[in-house]
Design a protein around this nucleic acid. Structure first.
Lengths: 189, 189
DNA sequence: GTCTATAATACGATAGAC
DNA sequence: GTCTATCGTATTATAGAC
């Protein structure tokens, strides 16, 4: 998957292609187990070419994390502009599901899968942690108890969970998404 | 943390010490980012000494996975001997919480944190996958819908979630555990 | 922008002395 | 059972030609 091996080395979006190849590899085999040689060969260039577009391997992952942060920012901005209520929180979860069905979902999955690798990257550890906290915060009632906070986190996990893997649950992707929304609505106070 | 740096190189449980040091390192920094040199130095020996007790780095992680599997087996055996009912499933979750409060929890956390590294280890990928499925299976009603299956997985996640990290939820560890049990009871049909 | 070539380093793993 | 010493390999990253 992912690559295009040979030929087709004509387009001028090498930087973007590197990001896409890296996203795929990082998600499937992990950041540590992915070498720059693999990424380069996926698009038919050499390692040195990759180093023209990114100063380091870390910087590739960092660029993906920043894209995720930017996408999430829009969602957070919307939520912060609302008056907190249960209906707003449920709408936030619906919007999160919609957003993570697209490209944002792939990046979030990559970030999630490589949480440990990111934890030892000074340039991104704070960013990842901050956005996780922010998402929890806007989805949680202001006066929430410990149990209510935990409920919110589980609701978010339900949404994110069905966006990848989970095919072994059976049913279609749409059915799984609807099930996750029902559970989220049920678990949130 | 974890280590004892120098001195104290007297006891005859080097194999166990290697496992403990590896468990700690693998959990905190990840399997890939942990070198055998680090593990060896944690207990004040050399890499070569580690290779006397384990044939490879993989074998260390493998030994931890097998210990986890053995601990889980007891839980699964109990569950399989019961007549499926909601009360039995809730009791299973209580027993899971109790088991994962002890040493099993540390190993499960390590396995969870290194899911991606384990996925590329032929010797353990099947074992991990099998035990995850088995745990889901015994906790799920025989005729469960997609939504009910998802609910069971979330209940299990709630239990495992509060067993590590989650300190930022506030409250004591016991309070978080009780909250998780209440949510599990609430989310399970 | 992409190449070839290579430096510098760290790793997993082994051999053989003690 | 632990040591010293080392092998072979792969990696990240750089220098300089084109």
């Amino acid at each position: 998957m992912a690559g295009q091996a040979t030929q087709t080395r004509r387009r001028g979006d090498t930087r973007g292609e590197i990001q896409r190849a890296a996203l795929s590899r990082f998600t499937d085999q992990g950041y540590d187990k992915t070498s720059l040689r693999e990424i380069a060969e996926d698009l038919g260039v050499t390692k040195a070419a990759v180093y023209y577009h990114f100063r380091s391997k870390e910087e590739i992952l960092e660029s993906l994390v920043r894209e995720m942060a930017d996408s999430l920012e829009a969602l957070l901005d919307w939520a912060r502009a609302q008056t907190p209520s249960r209906e707003v929180r449920l709408e936030l979860l619906r919007r999160l599901a919609a957003a993570t069905s697209g490209g944002l979902g792939d990046t979030m999955r990559c970030v999630q899968q490589n949480e440990l690798a990111l934890a030892s990257m000074p340039s991104t550890v704070d960013l990842v942690h901050r956005y996780k906290q922010e998402l929890w915060k806007v989805a949680t009632p202001p006066d929430a108890t410990v149990e209510q906070k935990l409920r919110v986190r589980l609701a978010i996990m339900a949404i994110l969970l069905v966006n990848h893997g989970s095919a072994d649950l059976g049913g279609t992707a749409a059915e799984r998404q609807e099930a996750a929304q029902r559970i989220a609505a049920d678990v949130i106070i």
